[in-house]
Computed example of a mutant assay.
Amino acid sequence: MVKPRGWLEWEAEQARDWVYRPQAGDDKYSRGVLGVRTGSKDYPGAAVLGVDAAVRTGLGMVRYLGPRRAATLVLQRRPEIVTVPGRVQAWLLGSGINASTRTDAVTTALTEALAEGLPTVLDAGALDLVSRAIGPTVITPHAGELAAMLAHEAKPGSASQIAANPGEWAIRAARLFDVTVLLKGAVTHVASPSGARLTVSTGPAWLATAGSGDVLGGILGALLATHSDQLETDAASLAPLAATAALLHAEAAMLASAGGPIAALDIADAVPRAVAALLDHWADPGAR
Rank of each mutant, 00 (worst) to 15 (best):
R68E: 15
A71G: 15
A126W: 00
L129G: 11
S95D: 06
I97M: 09
G96C: 04
A105H: 09
E116M: 11
G94N: 05
A71T: 15
Q89A: 13
L93I: 05
A99S: 14
P119L: 00
L92Q: 02
R87V: 13
V130N: 02
A105W: 02
G96F: 05
T108P: 01
A124T: 04
V74P: 01
L93M: 02
I81K: 01
T108I: 07
G66S: 01
A115I: 03
G117Y: 06
D123S: 11
A90L: 06
T111A: 15
V121Q: 07
L110P: 04
L122I: 10
L65M: 09
Q89P: 00
A105R: 14
W91K: 03
R68P: 02
P67K: 00
T103D: 12
V130L: 06
P67N: 04
R68G: 01
T83W: 09
W91P: 01
V130C: 04
V84C: 04
A90M: 11
E116C: 12
I81D: 05
G125V: 08
T83L: 13
G66E: 01
I97S: 02
G94R: 06
D104R: 15
A90D: 08
V121N: 08
G66Q: 04
G86W: 01
A105E: 14
A126F: 05
E112M: 13
V121F: 03
A99R: 13
V130P: 00
T108H: 13
P67D: 10
